[in-house]
């Protein structure tokens, strides 16, 4: 399993698209917001936590179909299925690889982009923490969506339609942590709920994703 992770990470780096894709999209979305909403800083700073979260979420969504598509096309998914690795393990490693190549960079880039949106000072740490806790869930849920639509040609749009409603709880609690952090309120409740969802999803969803992948490989 570790080999699968290192291979996926190497592929992401070598193919170049891996890291850059999510980050550049996140940057573009964050830059577009002031154009759309107007440059008044007090307005921007109020919506900054939400915008950062939505940007990160969409960046995750964009790079989901690459998770299985490459292995599906060149047949290595079939070969992996005959390997001694449990399918749940393969799916979790794929989600982890997606998180490292896409989720993590978003967490690191968020404060930098926060400056663009004049994010209030106390909010910086909470945006980073909420994203750090929330993005793993986005990757695992996304992997489930990617597995569902791996066999469907041009399944990207369908995957977004399936995955976005599943993102709602994570988005609500994540953005809530960031927003409360910005206003200096206690963030304990939404943070715990966010963590609860993330851990629950990480623990349970791979079984569903594995089942779906087995069906698609049939």
């Amino acid at each position: 399993m570790k080999a699968l992770l290192t291979r996926d990470l190497m592929l992401a780096i070598r193919a170049g698209g891996g890291f850059g894709l999510g980050l550049s999209f996140f940057l573009i979305v964050t830059v577009l917001v002031p154009f759309g909403v107007g440059p008044q800083t007090e307005l921007l700073s109020r919506i900054a936590p939400g915008v950062l979260w939505i940007g990160a979420l969409l960046a995750c969504l964009l790079s989901l179909d690459r998770i299985f598509a490459l292995d599906w096309e060149d047949g290595s998914l079939d070969l992996l299925a005959t390997a001694p690795l449990p399918m749940e393990g393969i799916v979790s490693v794929k989600a982890l690889a997606h998180w490292i190549t896409t989720g993590l960079p978003l967490v690191l880039a968020a404060p930098v982009l926060g400056v663009l949106l004049s994010l209030p000072i106390p909010a910086y740490q909470w945006v980073v923490i909420s994203l750090a806790v929330g993005t793993p869930a986005l990757s695992v849920i996304g992997t489930f969506g990617a597995a569902l639509t791996v066999g469907i040609k041009r399944g990207g749009l369908l995957m977004s339609l399936l995955v976005l409603p599943l993102y709602v709880p994570t988005l609500i609690f994540g953005a809530e942590v960031a927003r409360r952090g910005a206003e200096g309120l206690t963030v304990q409740a939404p943070l715990l709920l966010l963590a609860g969802i993330s851990f629950g999803v990480i623990a349970l969803l791979p079984f569903a994703s594995a089942a779906v992948l087995r069906i698609n490989l049939r």
């Binding site: 409603p165 709880p169 609500i172 609690f173």
Partner: peptide, 12 residues
């Protein structure tokens, strides 16, 4: 997730 969203929305 629908049930999760149901309570998340209430919280929100």
């Amino acid at each position: 997730f629908a049930i999760l969203s149901r309570y998340a929305v209430n919280f929100w």
